[in-house]
Design a binder for these strands. Structure first.
Lengths: 230, 230
DNA sequence: CGCTCGTTTGAGAGGTCTCAATTTGGGTGG
DNA sequence: CCACCCAAATTGAGACCTCTCAAACGAGCG
């Protein structure tokens, strides 16, 4: 078994595998790899064919598109998320590249094994579809925000969401500001100016610490759309 | 049976239903509706809960996001596509609104029936996932183009794709220019100016007819990314 | 024939980017 | 422990792209 017995129970508990039959799970673990990568390691590259489905067990992943050497971050993934699920299910080339942001542990399940399990195990199929649908909705939200919000508004919404997730009005940036800027579809300079502008709207920022001093005011500025914030 | 017997064979032939078991298909058709809508009919609205999965049998659908009365077209669907599949599978509110662009015929399958069939019929499950993955990749491409291409480049890529799909260097705009502009993430004015600019790059346009006079030149300008054009 | 609505053109403002210089902050080695 | 160094972040200035507002134009329809 490629995934050691000691690791299996942890994986078993993940939403993606929880409802799976014992036999399917055992078979899948046997064919899979659990691997550690250093920070800034290239995992996959745009245009390649999907050999594995990747699942972020630990760390963080940067999904980005490339063009003429320029990069734009499409999504940032934390445990427990899959990536390139769509490419695996359709057996078509990746549309984005991926690299680790920090040292990370990834579960790698061979594409064909995923597709086989999908066909045989309806609980796994449900989990896969749920995950894929969640990612779809995520990209949809990003696209809508890019189209209809100014850069400062996107930043404001991101802050509101981060604060809500952290359950506090104060939280630490989980990544470099330049990465966050790219994720929000702007340059580092615009991010910086945007943050300055938000000080007029209930946000204070010292280094990597962001504090929402006036949630109501910030929310009014951000005008969160459906599916954003509350 | 809510879907008349005469219509069923046509639907049966669609990729989504082709491999489905006879029993599942019959049960689904019994619970479904095949309905005609006039042009500009509102089908669903952002924020509502999914009662049905919709499948475009005939016509065209505009999927758009709203904000302060402003609209931005996220996607335009032609037969045979599903919409709001992600919301149905996750049983979460719609992120976008939909309306018909032209008189259209839609197959409406109750959400719960879709989810039941997904669980019982693995061929249907495969088709659903394939469709969802395809839509996911579609939005991803749109987002990447919005982020990394100028409006004229987006227009150029759209023309290249349209020409390729039509199998000819000359084709007719399938919708209003203002809708197309919104779909490409720009204003009607920008679309118009963009088209003017493209006359220097191998495109000629008279009314609703677009002709690619110099495909190589246009391709050089558009610099199509992976998954765009050829 | 003359509306009406979509499209095009024009002029100007605004948001975001680019390029460059400066400052900040974290990490390293003396 | 501190000074230095490098990369990231900030600030400034200017250009560019796209949008907005306004007016002129044109095609389809009553």
């Amino acid at each position: 078994m490629s995934v050691r017995l000691a690791e299996a129970p942890l994986i078993r508990a993940l939403p993606l595998f929880k409802e799976m039959s014992e036999a399917s799970f055992a078979g899948m673990m046997e064919a899979s790899l659990l691997q550690r990568f250093p920070a800034r390691a290239d995992i996959i590259r745009e245009g390649e064919m999907p050999d594995f489905l990747y699942i972020v067990i630990e760390g963080a992943i940067d999904l980005f598109a490339t063009r003429d050497g320029e990069e734009s971050t499409i999504d940032i993934l934390y445990p427990v998320s899959t990536f390139i699920l769509a490419a695996v299910m359709r057996d078509e080339p990746y549309l984005k590249s991926a690299r680790t942001l920090v040292p990370s542990q990834l579960l790698m399940v061979p594409s064909q094994v995923v597709r086989d399990a999908f066909n045989r195990d309806s609980a796994f199929a449900r989990a896969i579809v749920s995950e894929l649908a969640a990612r779809y909705r995520g990209v949809t939200r990003v696209l809508r925000n890019d189209r209809m919000l100014s850069s400062a508004e996107r930043l404001a919404n991101w802050i509101l969401n981060s604060a809500r997730r952290s359950g506090s009005n104060e939280f630490e940036l989980p990544l470099e500001k330049r990465k966050l800027a790219s994720y929000l579809g702007m340059t580092p300079e615009s991010y910086s100016r945007g943050m300055t502008a938000l000080e007029q709207h209930g946000v204070r920022s010292h280094g990597a610490t962001i504090t929402v001093t006036d949630p109501a005011r910030l929310k009014e500025f951000a005008r969160p759309a459906l599916g954003e914030d509350s």
